[in-house]
């Protein structure tokens, strides 16, 4: 293996690990004010929003591809299906759509 590539990979690994590790190890048992505790509890929902929008609609140049995927996922999960079923139906619907 080329040492140059090896050092790039190692460096990438270190700078990726540090932000993942610091809060879980250093912040343990720090008493945050209730407001900021609430903000941290909000983070997962806000993150999901930013991960889905706009990315899901831009998978392809064809806007309908993402729209169709989004709405089938929303409908199936609204009906109470678990995540695996949602993924399966969504992939299936889009496979059919791309074959049309």
């Amino acid at each position: 293996m080329r040492s140059n590539i090896f050092f790039i990979i190692l460096g990438m690994g270190i700078v990726t690990y540090i932000p993942r590790m610091l809060p879980l190890t250093v912040f343990h048992r720090i008493d945050l004010p209730p407001f900021w505790r609430g903000v941290l509890r909000n983070v997962p929902y806000a993150t999901l929003g930013a991960l889905i929008i706009p990315g899901m609609f831009l998978i392809q140049d064809d806007l309908w591809f993402g729209m169709l995927g989004f709405f089938s996922a929303v409908v199936v999960s609204w009906l109470g299906a678990n995540v695996m079923i949602v993924v399966f139906v969504c992939v299936l619907v889009l496979t059919v759509y791309t074959m049309l």
Binding site: I52, I59, G66, G69, F70, S77, V83, V86, V87
Partner: peptide
């Protein structure tokens, strides 16, 4: 689309 569908399935 699979990972996006998973995100929607978690959020809804």
């Amino acid at each position: 689309v699979a990972l996006y569908a998973m995100f929607v399935g978690l959020l809804v």
